[in-house]
Design a protein around this nucleic acid. Structure first.
Lengths: 116, 116
DNA sequence: GGGACAGTTCAATAAAACTTGAAATATGTC
DNA sequence: GACATATTTCAAGTTTTATTGAACTGTCCC
């Protein structure tokens, strides 16, 4: 991944609304949700949600497909994983011992962290 | 982590310049670099770099400490890992089999991915 | 076709972020 | 103290983003 692409992905996640939407879609992977469900669950006006869904979709982090009258949105988990790897893959210039120490300082379940 | 905090962290990574700076500091963990080194390595005017270093520092993703005439900046790897976990921890509502399939679709080294 | 529903686009405004040069602050050296 | 170096702060202009209501498009069902 290149830097400009990655920064666009982070930009897509840089608003409260979009991050909440994306996490909701991640939680509801792999099926996703239709726009109206997202609006109801997060209590976002349709117009504003549409603006943010468009931004997420253009970034590639979310996909959209029509389903009758509805449009179903899904999180692109593989792209999410790619951008995570972009952030971490050169940590400590690849020194695994250095990274291990950092992981131990994190407060989260190690299952949700890269192993290196 | 709460949503507003996480979106602020992604905002910190949402500019080309800041993402390049942050990744440079991650690569140079745990020692970090002084501002002038960052400016030279990435060819960024001092004024602009200072603006972005301030944003990164205020987000918490980067720490700063004076070292004589210099100021040394370091990436906060534990916070980076926390925000990664925030993004991934509720994936597929915790269904490990579902997440495993997604990991397999990713094009990156699995060592850089969460195991769940 | 007409009406209801789902969702988007448009226009306007308000708010925030980016970049740059000039000036200022802090530190070290002579 | 005077000067050079490292970095930041300030001010100004430009650009980008967020939010909202009104109008529009697409789909379903009668």
């Amino acid at each position: 991944m290149e830097s400009r692409k990655a920064s666009k992905l982070f930009e897509a996640l840089s608003s409260d609304v979009r991050l909440d939407v994306f996490r909701l879609l991640v939680r509801n992977a792999p099926d996703g949700l239709v726009a109206g469900d997202v609006a109801r669950l997060l209590d976002i006006p349709a117009t504003n949600l549409s603006f943010h869904l468009k931004a997420l979709t253009q970034s590639g982090l979310v996909t959209a497909e029509r389903e009758g009258r509805f449009i179903r949105y899904k999180a692109s988990i593989p792209l999410m994983l790619d951008v995570i790897a972009y952030l971490t893959s050169e940590c400590c210039s690849g020194n695994p011992e250095c990274c291990r120490k950092f992981r131990e300082q994190s407060s989260v379940d190690p299952r949700f962290l890269p192993t290196r």
